[in-house]
Structure formats: structure tokens, C-alpha cells
């Protein structure tokens, strides 16, 4: 990597010391700035952060996520969002304002094991994250294949200004829905395209720390073999 200010770090490593501002995955200990996660440290201007290479998804308001229905009560669904917390989808979000716990059967809309694209509507320290699927691009996923990557590698999969994901979609003809939680749904009419798209995503997962990854993925996608 050209930027000499990037380093591989593990928890406890001292990244630098001096008048820097600590951002993600670092703490200030006196003058020292210390990594709290395995990843790549970056110093930009006066800020220091670590791009983590592992860990669970931390819900943020407005994030798009792929979620799996776990169960429901008479008033809401519980969804696995690959996080420390279970996502909460109120029945009214799906049935509308006139939802009636007596008349409307939650099972008729979403069942255990169904996958949905959802947005984090609210998330704070005291409550489980609130989800919504009432928007045009949201809702139940009817077809495709689920691929799981580490949530910390999602930015790498998208790439700078979306270059990585566009490269994969163009080369394979696949439509890829990226959840910020690391769950990705790939659908493609052509089974070879599907296989290649999944392989490209797995490459990003395995080699996220390596420079010129986009070129590597490109050459894999262009190769005829496999």
C-alpha cells in the first residue's frame, strides 16, 4: 500500500501518540492511541481509526440490512440481523395502521425462515433495533442465494464509489443486494453468473486486507476456467 500511514494492528497495539482525534476502534490512553480491534489502522489529518476485519454488525439508523424471520408474536416479528441484537418489525409496518391483532394473521405475510430486505428505522442503547420494510426497495426476498461475509468487509465489497460491486454485477449479470450487516443476496438467471458472483464475494471476504483487490477480482471474473 502506498499510504505509509496504514498498518496492520491487533488489540493493544499503539498506533501513534500525539494530538490526534480517536475515531472508530481506537482508544486514547494518555498520549497514546491504541487499537481495540484486529484491522488496518489509518491516520488522516488529525484523526486515527482502525478498519476492523472481524466482529458482529452494529445497527445504525438508515442502514439497509438483509434479515431472516425467527419468530413472531401477535404484534410483531423478530428478525435475525446478524447482530448482537434481534431486529423488531411491528405488524403495523406490514399491515398498515388498521392492523388488528384479531383479524390479521402475521404468518400470512412473513414466515419463519423468510428473508427480507429491511431498513433500520431506529436503534439506541436501550431498545432492540426497530426495522421497517415499507418502502419500494424493501420487503420479502423471493429468489436468490444468501452469502454471508463479515460486516466489517461490506465497504470493501461496495468499493470506492461502488466500483467493486459494479464490476461484479457487470461481469456476471447478477443482481446483488448488499445488507450492511454482511448478508448479501445474489440472484442471477444464469447459473454460471451466479457461481462467479458468489465466488467474487467470497474473494472479497478472504482477501479484504490485500491491496489491488479490485484487479484480482476482475481477473478472476474474466478467467474462463472454473
Amino acid at each position: 500500500m502506498e499510504n505509509t500511514k496504514r498498518k496492520y494492528v491487533i488489540p493493544g497495539d499503539v498506533i501513534t501518540s500525539g494530538p490526534y482525534r480517536p475515531e472508530q476502534n481506537v482508544i486514547l490512553d494518555g498520549e497514546r492511541i491504541i487499537a481495540t480491534a484486529i484491522g488496518i489502522s489509518e491516520i488522516y489529518d488529525d484523526t486515527v481509526r482502525v478498519i476492523s476485519l472481524t466482529g458482529k454488525y452494529i445497527p445504525k439508523i438508515n442502514d439497509l440490512v438483509v434479515a431472516k424471520v425467527l419468530s413472531h408474536s401477535s404484534l410483531s416479528w423478530e428478525l435475525d440481523i446478524n447482530s448482537s441484537y434481534v431486529g423488531f418489525l411491528p405488524a403495523a409496518d406490514v399491515f398498515g395502521r388498521d392492523f388488528s391483532a384479531h383479524a390479521d394473521e402475521l404468518n400470512s405475510k412473513l414466515k419463519k425462515g423468510d428473508l427480507v430486505v429491511a431498513r433500520i428505522a431506529n436503534s439506541d442503547r436501550s431498545r432492540d433495533p426497530l426495522l421497517t420494510i415499507s418502502d419500494r426497495e424493501l420487503g420479502k426476498i423471493e429468489s436468490g442465494e444468501l452469502v454471508e461475509i463479515s460486516p466489517s468487509k461490506v465497504p470493501r465489497l461496495i468499493g470506492k464509489r461502488g466500483t467493486m460491486i459494479q464490476t461484479i454485477e457487470m461481469a456476471t449479470g447478477a443482481i446483488i443486494t448488499i445488507g450492511q450487516n454482511g448478508w448479501i443476496v445474489v440472484s442471477c438467471e444464469n447459473s454460471d453468473g451466479l457461481l462467479k458472483a458468489v465466488k467474487a464475494i467470497q474473494m472479497v471476504e478472504e482477501q479484504a486486507h490485500i491491496a489491488n483487490l479490485t484487479d484480482r477480482v476482475k481477473s478472476m471474473l474474466e478467467s474462463k476456467g472454473e
Partner: peptide, 11 residues
């Protein structure tokens, strides 16, 4: 713990 991505001040 580090492998799981649990934030840690130190090993």
C-alpha cells in the same frame, strides 16, 4: 476474543 471482534483495550 480478538478473533470474535470483541473490542479490547489490550490482549
Amino acid at each position: 476474543l480478538a478473533d470474535a471482534g470483541i473490542p479490547m483495550r489490550d490482549m
